[in-house]
Simulated assay, not measured.
Amino acid sequence: MEVVSTIDQVRERIKQWGNEGKTIGFVPTMGYLHEGHGSLIQKAGENDKVVVSIFVNPMQFGPNEDLANYPRDFEKDKIYCESLGVDLIFHPDPKEMYSERFCTYVDMSILTEELCGKSRPVHFRGVCTVVSKLFHIVQPDRAYFGQKDAQQLAIIKQMVEDLNIDVEVIGCPIIRERDGLAKSSRNTYLNKEERVAALVLSQAVKIGEELVLNGEKDATLIKETMIAKIESEPLAKIDYVKIVDGLTMQPVERIEKTVLAALAVYIGKTRLIDNFIFEI
């Protein structure tokens, strides 16, 4: 496994693999890797070569968010990647990705206006900008993203379509702890009491999913039932609970086509997300 920190080094290796006719699978991450990332890396193994980027992207953090405290353990990440057969890690410094004169951004409307985009207004501008840069640097055949960040997945798929980026974006299922909590790097912020309280997210998701599977079509009723479950936990503070169109991310009143039921909840000071997708 090779570890590089510059764009030129990545491009040199990608050019070599291209000349050899190798296919490239790419998993962009912010590091502090867990089994959720591992499932994406394993799926990317369907390609000849696997590239993982590890870059805590400052552009997608708001002024009062957790950039400085975001968990990092690059040495552990390297060992984990090597155990999964990764061929190349791209681990750039922020100055490598954003020069002092940097002034070009990728903005999107509609899909970014609800859910996390509403409560984190600069977030998806940062995500779209860095992912588009990474796609141009790595030039993968396929890129892999987790469904836990379902809005992000929908946005990246739309960005690729809109900007004619030659990459297949593949969504992969949420990986959960044994008790149901969705795997997240931010789970490490939780103390013992908060860790137990955080289960209310997956419990609310399960309640909503069961209602839909049993034929309930009223999105408001489903949402209110999920909210009631979350509000039964004293340590939980709701950012949002919404049911939206699976493509446009706009709110729906009835379940008549593919929908995303998504929630973001603060457990103490830690913001966690979860969701389910119901496909018709």
Rank of each mutant, 00 (worst) to 15 (best):
Phe74Ser: 04
Glu75Asp: 15
Lys76Gln: 06
Ile79Met: 10
Ile79His: 07
Ser83Tyr: 02
Leu84Asn: 03
Gly85Tyr: 12
Gly85Cys: 13
Phe90Ile: 00
His91Trp: 03
Pro92Asp: 10
Asp93Gly: 04
Pro94Thr: 12
Lys95His: 09
Lys95Val: 12
Glu96Leu: 08
Met97Leu: 07
Met97Lys: 09
Phe102Lys: 05
Cys103Trp: 12
Thr104Gln: 11
Asp107Tyr: 14
Met108His: 01
Met108Asn: 01
Thr112Ala: 05
Glu113His: 09
Leu115Gln: 00
Gly117Val: 06
Lys118Asn: 11
Ser119Ala: 13
Phe124Met: 05
Phe124Asn: 00
Arg125Glu: 00
Gly126Glu: 09
Gly126Asp: 10
Val127Asn: 04
Thr129Lys: 00
Val130Lys: 00
Val131Tyr: 07
Phe135Gly: 06
His136Cys: 08
Val138Trp: 11
Val138Asp: 10
Pro140Ile: 04
Pro140Phe: 01
Arg142Phe: 09
Arg142Val: 06
Phe145Met: 03
Gln151Gly: 05
Gln151Tyr: 04
Gln152Val: 08
Ala154Thr: 14
Ala154Leu: 11
Ile156Gln: 03
Ile156Ala: 06
Gln158Ala: 15
Gln158Cys: 10
Gln158Asn: 13
Met159Tyr: 10
Met159Phe: 11
Met159Ser: 10
Glu161Lys: 15
Leu163Arg: 01
Asn164Trp: 11
Ile165Phe: 04
Asp166Met: 12
Glu168Leu: 13
Val169Thr: 02
Ile170Lys: 12
Gly171Ser: 05
Pro173Gly: 07
Ile175Ser: 08
Arg176Glu: 04
Arg176Tyr: 00
Glu177Asp: 14
Glu177Ile: 10
Gly180Leu: 13
Leu181Asn: 05
Ala182Cys: 07
Lys183Gly: 02
Lys183Ile: 15
Ser184Arg: 01
Ser184Met: 06
Ser185Ile: 03
Arg186Tyr: 06
Asn187Met: 07
Tyr189Ser: 00
Lys192Leu: 15
Lys192Ile: 14
Glu194Asp: 08
Glu194Ala: 08
Val196Pro: 08
Val196Ile: 15
Ala197Thr: 05
Leu199Ser: 12
Leu201Cys: 07
Leu201Ile: 02
Val205Ile: 14
Glu209Arg: 15
Asn214Gly: 15
Lys217Trp: 05
